[in-house]
């Protein structure tokens, strides 16, 4: 949801500043950023697959959190750089993160409800 006053007063400014209405803020990263991002993504993917093949690590409590963190990192990098949310209008960030939060909340709630994740609440458990 956009904040209620976010567009106030910027209509004319937006028009005047842009000159044309293509809207995308044209400060997209360049080739050097793109290939660095691709390299980082590849490295993380290799790290993830490598984790999978280390039995002692798979058996440890860190396996799932580390994999989740790594994929969240990849997710974030693609969204910020390739989908250029880092550079784009904040409205697009709101349009994406709002639903993403609802989606994550729904997944976690469902996993709780189906007993896939449990919290020990002492007396209640």
């Amino acid at each position: 949801m956009t904040s209620p006053e976010s567009h106030h007063g910027q209509t004319a400014a937006a028009l005047a500043a842009q000159g044309h209405l293509e809207g995308a803020v044209h400060e997209h990263p360049t080739w050097s950023t793109y290939w660095k991002v691709a390299t980082i993504l590849t490295v993380i993917t290799v790290a993830e697959v490598w984790c999978y093949y280390v039995p002692s690590f798979v058996a440890s409590v860190w396996f799932v959190p580390v994999l989740l963190a790594l994929s969240a990192l990849k997710f974030g990098i693609v969204v910020l750089f390739y989908m250029h949310l880092k550079y784009d209008h904040k409205l697009f960030r709101a349009l994406f993160t709002g639903p993403l939060i609802v989606a994550m909340f729904t997944i976690v709630a469902l996993l709780f409800l189906f007993g896939k994740v449990a919290v020990r609440l002492g007396l209640l458990s």
Partner: peptide
């Protein structure tokens, strides 16, 4: 003229992507 200065289609595709998240 658009209120935000952004093109309609780009707002539309982001709303669509949000929906795809669900």
């Amino acid at each position: 003229y658009t209120t935000t200065g952004l093109p309609h289609r780009k707002i539309g595709i982001w709303a669509f992507i949000g929906s795809e998240c669900m």
